[in-house]
Design a binder for these strands. Structure first.
Lengths: 359, 359
DNA sequence: CTGAAAGCGCTTACAG
DNA sequence: CTGAAAGCGCTTACAG
């Protein structure tokens, strides 16, 4: 009989009462654990009504709650989907596009009783991230950063981890990876639409504002813009302005540096709304009229677009839906053993505002 | 010997190769599972170097990866913290204040090798939410909605779930719940500061814009504002304008309805920046000058504050840090069996902008 | 309708 | 330094 050391100044911290287990319920009800399991899992057809009732009373009496970890181990499923976001800036959820994807994914998974394990990784070396540990997740969604080549290699490796993978916004991957499904939106078309729009309005000289670290969607937007501007435009008239972390301050600093060495273009095309609004405000502060003197466009059509004047011409992204679609694709894969489609592309729409067209 | 039915049109889907287990590694290396376990867990002092090497080679050869689910069951810990957000609007991560808390929590937990299980619940009835299932999480953070009384009762019940609880932004809870730690910021002081500021500037008649569904922080901000306006202001001059989901459109609609029946106050005090900016824009559209004709304030000092003109006078909230502090508190609790502090209050600061003061 | 037993993949005293 | 065995809390064929 070992006892806690006597004369301790404080009350001996009483040992945490062990959680009631199925065994305890079984004993209390005078049945086997298996019958308890049947009640807990709603297999009432396997029980006599009075047995069931006795067990239910015992459950209530001892305050039993099932241990999901044990059940999941036994059933070899985690009822959880991982969401891994590579983010070297450390503010992943501060980006509304990502926050909305996460929101749609989490909400839809929740509807089907799945959880979402969220992790951001500052490093590109991601294979022993928590979300890939066996028994933690049944599938994982990734939103990567880095060069096209790096990401392609990484996804190939991830596809061998014996875990279904959803890759957001990727394009041009090998299509023989059965464990991988790409979900993206038509960023290329979005880029084309917005570029054609400003070109049709007569702009000749362009500058594109890009994030300092490109995600895959951004590259597509840029390609689309180049296509939309058209080769008939003749001269090389499309500058690129990287804007670091895309914050208001970084964007304006990058713009000022650009304008110190270059004439002001006819139109600034920004790869998201953040940078677009920062541009509008800087132009106005410089005494230029938007859109008469210079046009500005954004991308994503986030709620905060409404905060600035004039309203940004932009492209609507259905980010929340992208998360929801991912959840559905995973659920299908988990049920049927394969992805229904290996690539899903969501549409985008042009929204014209006062930043390119006067009322 | 049962075989798959012959003459199937498709290739028989080959049974997914079972994941290599410790047993497989042990056999491959000619040792016991326990030695494999020792290698996997870095207990190298318990092994002869050559044994270790043989095992490491076997691990690489069979492609073994540990099963976190099994390990966690055995060790009775989940290495995961839940984050539960009650959200009746369905856009929880769209709210930057919440997204930042989640980001800070997730990043800090990740540093200590803990995962974050994120779930939003549209209902207030939350006890059998995923995040409270045993074996899934070691602790859970909650950010609730609903009346003060409802939330207090709910937290009392949650504290009996045998799971440490961090309650964000709660105030005035019973302080005898050893399983509960409150982490909040000084919203009341923030409210006071901002109210005193506009009062000192000579405003006499006020209106406060509030969310349609109050979270606990919002109530505190309101109380602080009332205190800051002071009883010496004499008349009842502080109106309340609930703004539904706080979107740009809802806020402006609520404002217009208010102005149809009431004279314009001297100052609109908004419980967050979203509504503050929507107010500024509406006032300007109505031909009023901000701040000369009407003052407007916000709350939280989010990045998008920079998007509107004039710059909102607001209160800085350290939401990301709040998440990080929560992670630290949980880690301490998990290690020492009790919370270091039962309540942690983060400071707030007044930031003056052009929406109350002319340059 | 009910129960005894094996096992999910690990870890951890306990012997040797 | 190494191994055989028990057990974390469940589920699931298999008998009775």
């Amino acid at each position: 009989m070992t006892r806690p050391p006597p004369k301790s100044g404080k009350k001996a911290p009483r040992a945490p009462a062990p959680r009631p287990t199925m065994r305890k319920v079984a004993i209390a009800a005078g049945v086997s654990v298996m019958s308890v399991s049947n009640v807990v899992n709603g297999r009432f057809d396997l029980l006599r009504p009075d047995t069931r009732q006795r067990i239910e009373e015992a459950i209530a009496k001892v305050g039993y709650r099932p241990h999901a970890g044990a059940r999941n181990l036994r059933r070899s499923r985690a009822m959880t989907v991982g969401l891994l976001i590579i983010d070297q800036s450390g503010t992943f959820l501060g980006e509304p596009f990502i926050a909305q994807i996460a929101g749609g994914l989490s909400a839809t998974l929740g509807d089907y009783n799945y959880g979402m394990l969220l992790q951001a990784s500052p490093t590109l070396d991601v294979e022993d991230s928590l979300v890939f540990e066996h028994g933690r997740t049944d599938a994982v969604c990734v939103f990567l950063e880095g060069s096209d080549g790096y990401r392609a290699k990484l996804i190939e490796r991830l596809s061998k981890l014996d875990q279904p993978i959803i890759a957001f916004q990727e394009v041009g991957l090998r299509n023989d990876l059965p464990n991988v499904c790409v979900i993206r939106q038509h960023d290329l078309v979005g880029g084309q639409l917005i570029a054609q729009h400003v070109r049709d309005l007569g702009a000749k000289r362009f500058a594109v504002l890009t994030p300092g670290i490109m995600r895959p969607g951004a590259s597509q937007r840029l390609i689309g813009i180049r296509e939309g501007l058209g080769r008939d435009s003749g001269e090389k008239t499309c500058a690129i302005i990287p804007c670091g972390d895309m914050s208001f301050a970084s964007t304006q600093a990058a713009l000022l540096a650009f304008l110190a060495d270059n004439p002001c273009p006819d139109a600034f095309l920004s790869l998201n709304d953040h940078m677009g609004i920062a541009t509008v405000k800087l132009m106005k502060a410089q005494g230029l009229r938007v859109p008469q003197d210079v046009m500005v466009t954004g991308f994503n059509n986030m709620e905060f677009r409404q905060y600035a004047d004039p309203l940004l011409t932009t492209i609507t992204s259905h980010a929340y839906e992208m998360g929801a679609v991912a959840a559905k694709a995973i659920l299908y894969r988990l049920e049927h053993g394969r992805f229904e489609e290996t690539e899903i592309v969501l549409p985008v729409d042009l929204v014209v505002g006062g930043s390119t067209v006067t009322d």
